[in-house]
Nucleic acid binder design. Structure first.
Length: 739
DNA sequence: GAGCACTGC
């Protein structure tokens, strides 16, 4: 046969294909998408694909897919669903002929990238051509050519804001739906109403077993969505429970790790703990005890290496988890063992082969949102059954394993929740609500959520968006709100950016916002805390932490030629590079929206900083605190929460009025990333919120009323000169060297 | 005088 005769897909009827037809093409000589002969690599991979459980069910899949608009598909790890199902859909949808795409969403960027690469290889095409991926900062697709696109769920949600009918797609596959990310949850809601308008659009919701029924019920059109089941391919894991509850789970975990090391067969250990400090501490203790064992009993106990794993660890150190276990100390001595002590990152995001033992104390840190006081906090919380199951499964990836749960079987059965609460129930939804409104959802409260958030959470979001003037009093999107929704940011920050030209400081506000969008930039190595603190002191701007962030970024930019600048100044080069990237993206959005990107030169830096701080007030006027008494405690405006300045705060005095970026609840309530502001800015720039009629009586209200009275008295004087001179402490003038 | 669980746009 030659490729010039009959097309390999000749006779394929869209959405009527059979497994026999498809298998014929897959086994054929010619690639139907490139019209080239299949490569040797293709044939080699094909052998492996054919062994996947899902491959044997192709016929069954096509029967169900042809008949139904929505399918719920469950498959355990190793079933091959993420790589194979989208390919099956390609042969049925024939997207290459209809100029439509098939999307497969992933909660994480790395997954979208790596699966796309794998599938491109399986289909014998170049990544970025027929098969591509789309993630923030990177679009590896070719319009008109790409027909299978792996993407992050957040990316598809962004597209849905602009095209609520998702016209470009013929089938949408929501993978890892059981993880219930905010974006996947919102997409499910949007898609449920979309399938009524677009009868030609097919949906596959892929998930782990436990949630299937919930999704089937949720996607009931006339009857519940049918379930397609794919068996997994993992090894059995034996579960052990403690007889009694453990009073100290860290201590119990360390003891269990050492017990395994002494008594169990060779094989690596994975221990789950909750955070950086706990992990570093446990590693030190395990290492110490293991060294003692080795010294006392070198004939029966092998060496042990202990490796910490959490997200804020530099990439290079994260790679250590793939190092082999240490060799025996003497040849034919007892073999070495590796123990990885990890946060939840090893539960979903990172898979480590060779783990045979899992130690699960049953806790993780989880985000929680309290709408009453508008605070998101991190709390050590018991995990769910689903999560415990996922953790145990990590022991059975390469061979049969064991999982030691440091709680009783009774507690597992009775106390643990079935599922982790979905993110939508634990988050501040200001951003999400803006996205939904932009996507055309009219009634946020009656929107068909898989799990509906607390009404109070929605009210808080609507209230904020209304005060920011993103929504009018009837809840409709304003022109400003529409612009704000274009930024991948919290609404306060997009508001700041859009307001920044009024104060001639868009360049500066862009930097501040970018710096607020990346993880903590300050490094503080355990053994160099003093050095790190004094390095930070040198970069600090005493007027406020926001200005310090601006200063750090500018210094970083000015010293790009100096290779170790970041390291020498104890700031994270990775975070700064990320901020640079975010800044560039935000700048592109500004230009697209035709928001002026301006800056101006000032004779003196104090004036410059005043303008930037005024722009901050335009976004964050609801996050203001007023000093009460002399003990350094503050009261948040309107909510009247007693808070303190976070110890990381760089202010050199305790100003009467401050604006803060975050309210964090740890050992005490703190406000973090704090900048001094003037009360008259609040009255001038956010009169709606600071309307005395809407203000309950109290210290802060009285203080503001005092400010207003003083202002009225001074109207005859030259306003700007008078107020700025009066309010500038002498020493600041001295420091900037200008006056 | 604390501490960033983890993602994502």
């Amino acid at each position: 046969m030659t490729s010039s005769t009959k097309h390999p897909l000749f006779g394929f009827m869209p959405r009527r294909v059979t497994a026999k037809q498809v298998k014929g093409v897959i086994d054929g000589n010619e690639n139907p998408f490139t019209r080239l002969p299949h490569s040797p690599q293709y044939l080699k991979i094909l052998e492996a694909r054919k062994k996947l459980p899902v491959f044997a069910q192709m016929e069954e899949f096509y029967e169900m897919f042809t008949k139904h608009q929505i399918i719920v598909l469950v498959g355990e790890t190793g079933s091959g669903k993420t790589t194979q199902i989208p390919q099956f859909v390609v042969y049925s949808d024939m997207p290459q002929t209809k100029k439509k795409l098939i999307a497969c969403t992933q909660p994480r960027r790395v997954a979208a990238m790596s699966v796309a690469k794998r599938v491109a290889d399986e289909m014998d095409v170049t990544l970025g051509k027929q098969v591509g991926y789309s993630i923030r900062f990177e679009d590896m697709t070719e319009p008109g050519t790409t027909f299978l696109k792996y993407m992050t769920d957040g990316m598809l949600l962004r597209e849905a804001m602009h095209d609520p009918d998702l016209e470009r797609y013929s089938t949408i596959i929501l993978d890892e739906a059981h993880e219930r990310t905010l974006a996947t949850d919102i997409l499910m809601g949007l898609i449920k109403s979309l399938v009524k308008r677009r009868k030609d659009l097919k949906i596959i919701v892929m998930s782990a077993t436990l949630d299937a029924l919930k999704f089937q019920k949720y996607f009931t059109i006339d009857e519940p969505a049918p379930l397609f089941k794919v068996p997994g391919r993992t090894h059995p894991v034996e579960i052990f429970y403690t007889q009694e509850p453990e009073p100290d789970y860290v201590e119990a975990a360390i003891r269990t790790v050492l017990m395994i090391h002494r008594a169990e067969e060779p094989g690596d250990i994975l221990l789950f703990l909750t955070g950086e400090e706990e992990i570093e501490d446990a590693c030190r203790k395990i290492k110490g005890e293991a060294d003692d064992l080795l010294a006392n009993d070198p004939d029966t106990v092998g060496p042990l290496s202990c490796i910490p794993l959490y997200s804020s660890l530099p990439t290079q150190q994260q790679q250590r988890i793939f190092d082999p276990a240490p060799p025996p100390r003497v040849s034919d001595g007892p073999p070495g063992r590796k123990v990885i002590v990890s946060t939840n990152i090893a539960e979903t995001s990172l898979t480590i082969d060779g783990i045979v033992y899992v130690v699960d104390p049953g806790f993780s840190k989880q985000k929680l949102y309290n709408p009453r006081i508008r605070v998101e906090s991190l709390l050590v919380t018991p995990i769910s059954k689903a999560s415990a199951q996922q953790r145990a499964g990590r022991a059975g990836r390469t061979r049969p394993g064991k999982c030691f749960r440091l709680y009783t079987e009774k507690d597992f059965m009775k106390e643990l929740e079935e599922q982790t609460h979905p993110e939508i129930l634990r988050s501040n939804l200001a951003n999400t609500v803006l996205e939904l409104v932009k996507a055309g959802v009219k009634d946020l409260v009656r929107f068909d959520y898989v799990d509906a958030p607390a009404p109070e959470t929605l009210m808080r979001a609507l209230e904020l968006l209304n005060f920011l003037a993103a929504l009018d009093d009837d809840g409709n999107l304003t022109a400003l709100g529409s612009k704000m929704s274009e930024f991948p940011l919290d609404p306060q920050m997009s508001k700041m950016l859009i307001a920044s030209p009024e104060f001639s400081c868009s360049q500066e506000v862009l930097t501040v916002v970018a710096m607020l969008s990346v993880p903590n930039i300050w490094l503080r190595p355990n053994n160099q805390r003093k050095e790190a603190d004094s390095a930070k002191q040198l970069l600090t701007v005493p007027d406020g932490d926001h200005l310090t962030l601006l200063n750090v970024f500018n210094e970083y930019q000015n010293n790009l030629h100096e290779r170790n600048w970041a390291w020498n100044n104890y700031v994270s080069a990775r975070a700064l590079a990320q901020a640079d990237n975010v800044r560039a993206q935000l700048l592109r959005v500004m230009e697209r929206l035709e928001v002026d990107v301006v800056t101006k030169s000032y004779p003196d830096q104090t004036r410059h900083y005043i303008d930037i701080r005024k722009a901050l007030v335009c976004g964050y006027f609801m996050q203001v605190a007023h000093k009460e008494g002399e003990k350094g405690s503050y009261l948040t405006v309107k909510d009247n929460q007693v808070v303190s300045l976070h110890p990381s705060c760089g202010l050199d005095t305790q100003p009467e009025w401050v604006l803060f970026n975050e309210f964090v609840l740890t050992t005490r309530p703190y406000i973090r990333t704090v900048t001094e502001i003037r009360p008259e800015w609040l009255l001038e720039l956010s009169a709606n919120y600071y309307d005395f009629n809407l203000f309950t009586d109290g210290e802060t209200k009285r203080a503001l009323q005092g400010v207003l009275r003083k202002q009225i008295k001074q109207t005859s004087k030259k306003r700007i000169a008078a107020s700025s001179d009066m309010l500038q402490p002498q020493k600041k003038k001295a420091r900037t060297g200008v006056s």
